[in-house]
Every structure is written in structure tokens, then in C-alpha cells.
């Protein structure tokens, strides 16, 4: 428990939050690890957790009939993996494959929600920071979609 707290306070994501707030969030969290080649979650599976990567690399992949498995995006140290726990139907949209051994903090979605409802100010802070991550990632994906390196002719 206090080990998780020690990890979280050193993460940039939690910078500026009070110890009390981080402690509250830590109640939903556990330290986990995944070996290279393993899978954190698979498309369609029940989505309960979100992960903050402490070490290692994760590839979000999408299986297609026509083109095989495509990597949509890779996520790395300091980044979150998994948002599907937030809204129904609580199912993963992608596979999360471990590219290199991962250590992560696993947050329990339902518990995070409960903590947020009990302390709306903390809930807002967490939500605001989550959306910042999501917005940045969405904007990056838009550039990725543009296929800027292709040749026009």
C-alpha cells in the first residue's frame, strides 16, 4: 500500500496533487508486471483496469482480416494504457501486447469511480488529468492519420 503511494508520488502525472489525494487514489492501485510477449488485455474482453507504465513498452494492436495484426500505437514509461473501463460496455477495443518486460501500476476502475464520487474534487482532478492525456493522444493520432510522409503525385 505505502509502496504504491511511494511510486505514485514520483510520477509526473500526480505532480501537484496533495499526499492525501495520492493516498486515496493509491487505494485503488496495485503494482503488477508482465513478461515480454504476454498480453495485458485482449479486444472484446471485460475492461476493468487502467495501467500506468513504469517500465517497458506496450503495443496496442488491432486484428484485421485483410491486413493481419496492426500496431495502432505503442505506449511507454509514464503513459497510461486503457480507457475502456470508464464507460459501457466496458470492453477492450484493442489488444495490449507487451513488447518488452513491463512494470506497471494497475488501477481498479470501479474503485477509482467510487473514490471519485466520495471526493468530487479529487474526482475532477483525476478526470481532468485523464482527459488531458486522452486529448493529447487523440491529437497525435490525428497527425498519424494524415499519413504526412506519403508521396503526392
Amino acid at each position: 500500500m505505502s509502496e504504491v503511494f511511494d511510486v505514485l508520488v514520483n510520477q509526473p502525472f500526480f505532480a501537484g496533487m496533495t499526499d492525501e489525494q495520492v493516498r486515496a487514489v493509491a487505494k485503488s492501485a496495485a503494482l503488477v508486471s508482465f513478461d515480454e510477449g504476454s498480453v495485458i488485455f485482449v479486444e472484446g474482453g471485460p475492461a476493468r483496469y487502467t495501467y500506468l507504465i513504469l517500465e517497458g513498452d506496450v503495443a496496442l494492436t488491432l486484428r484485421t482480416q485483410e491486413h493481419g495484426s496492426k500496431i495502432i500505437q505503442t505506449l511507454h514509461r509514464g503513459e497510461f494504457v486503457g480507457w475502456s473501463w470508464m464507460y459501457p460496455p466496458y470492453r477492450w477495443n484493442f489488444d495490449a501486447n507487451v513488447q518488452t518486460d513491463v512494470k506497471a501500476v494497475q488501477f481498479d476502475g470501479p474503485k477509482l469511480k467510487k473514490i471519485s464520487l466520495a471526493d468530487p474534487e479529487l474526482g475532477y482532478t483525476m478526470m481532468r488529468r485523464f482527459t488531458e492525456v486522452i486529448v493529447n493522444r487523440m491529437q497525435a493520432l490525428r497527425i498519424q492519420l494524415l499519413d504526412v510522409y506519403s508521396t503526392f503525385r
Binding site: 513498452d57 503495443a59 494492436t61 493481419g68 495484426s69 496492426k70 500496431i71 495502432i72 500505437q73 505503442t74 511507454h76 501486447n97 513488447q99 497525435a140 493520432l141 497527425i143 498519424q144
Partner: peptide
């Protein structure tokens, strides 16, 4: 990238 790529995917 295909899944055989071991590096980062993203902008």
C-alpha cells in the same frame, strides 16, 4: 506497423 515491429508506433 505490423506486429513484427518491435519499436514505437506513433507520431
Amino acid at each position: 506497423a505490423e506486429q513484427t515491429w518491435r519499436g514505437p508506433v506513433g507520431v
